[in-house]
């Protein structure tokens, strides 16, 4: 192999440019030049480092043959393997099966017992998830308020308008299942399921905002078609027909909240939703 007199220029240049890039990064940091400068300089520095190393390795490669190394192909020869097995299983103590079995029982018991503290990851004793999921805190007489806490009158919404409401007095973040969407439609357009005529006030209908497919808030309201659409998987619900799903993967309608007005004309609930809110779950 010939010995070159000087370091290859391209490699040295690449490394020096890399150093320059690093200096540029430091300067960009001190001067506050922003994300593009920081990333461009440091990224560029590494890029030149990569180039220099690649060029260096290709210079070495140019003079290198293919190397060959032997590899063992098969399993250990039988004799050696038998010796290993004997060394592993030789036991000077009699009735070792019983001993191993007892040890195994101890280890299994410890392992099983160690799983019990995982219960602490679940909420306190006495909460049955199926019960909790089946109901929401909405009760008859609860006023409907916006996220800011303002109660709502039917006339506050224009026909075609929509707003998200919660029961008065509860923290919306702690009781997500109470999230309700109010929509005002022309009463003549309503074709609700039987028995729900009294659940509407002046064309204002209330449905659970949680999609029955995967629980996302059904946030898109199109007032020309009077449809609520969920942006996660594009389920569409017909507001005039009990929020029945008209397309998409949602399997059942959004539960409806029965409405009335109180003495001051504000909207109140007449009870909980017509069914469990959100998507179906495994034990239901």
């Amino acid at each position: 192999m010939s010995r070159p007199e000087r370091a290859p220029r391209s490699v040295v240049a690449a490394f020096l440019l890399s150093a320059l890039g690093a200096a540029g990064f430091a300067a960009s940091y001190v001067l506050g030049l922003g994300n593009e400068a920081l990333g461009g300089c440091l990224g560029g520095s590494f890029a030149f480092l990569a180039l220099g190393l690649a060029r260096w390795s290709s210079l070495i490669d140019a003079g290198e043959p293919d190397y060959v190394e032997e590899r063992s192909v098969g399993p250990t020869p039988q004799g050696q393997y038998d010796a290993f097995r004997r060394a592993l299983t030789e036991q000077p103590v009699p009735r070792s099966r019983v001993l191993w079995g007892a040890l195994g029982t101890a280890v299994a018991a410890i392992g099983g017992a160690a799983l019990f503290p995982l219960r602490s990851l679940l909420p306190a004793m006495g909460t049955d998830p199926d019960d909790v999921l089946a109901h929401t805190p909405w009760r008859a007489g609860d006023r409907l308020v916006t996220e800011e806490g303002t109660p709502v009158r039917p006339s506050d919404l224009e026909v075609g308008g929509t707003v998200t409401v919660f029961p008065e007095g509860l923290d919306p973040r702690e009781h997500v299942d109470t999230t309700t969407v109010l929509v005002r439609v022309d009463p003549a357009d309503l074709r609700l399921p039987a028995g729900r005529a009294g659940w509407v006030v002046d064309g204002v209908v209330a449905y659970s905002k949680l999609c029955t497919h995967a629980g996302c808030p059904v946030g898109l309201y199109t007032d020309t078609s009077r449809q609520l659409m969920c942006p996660c998987h594009h389920s569409v619900f017909d507001v005039t027909d009990g929020a029945r799903p008209v397309e998409g993967p949602a399997p059942h309608a959004l539960p409806q909240l029965p409405l009335a007005t109180d003495g001051s004309g504000y909207l109140v609930a007449r009870g909980d939703f017509s069914g469990p809110v959100g998507p179906g779950w495994g034990n239901h």
Binding site: L122, T127, P129, A214, G215, H284
Partner: peptide, 27 residues
């Protein structure tokens, strides 16, 4: 939220599974 709903969808144990992961109701 979608992860929570998918976890809850496992038959028999779904609701317990989602409550285990999220320490109760979502979120």
């Amino acid at each position: 939220r979608i992860f929570n709903s998918v976890a809850a969808s496992v038959p028999v144990v779904g609701s317990w599974l989602s409550f285990l992961v999220f320490d109760g109701e979502f979120p």
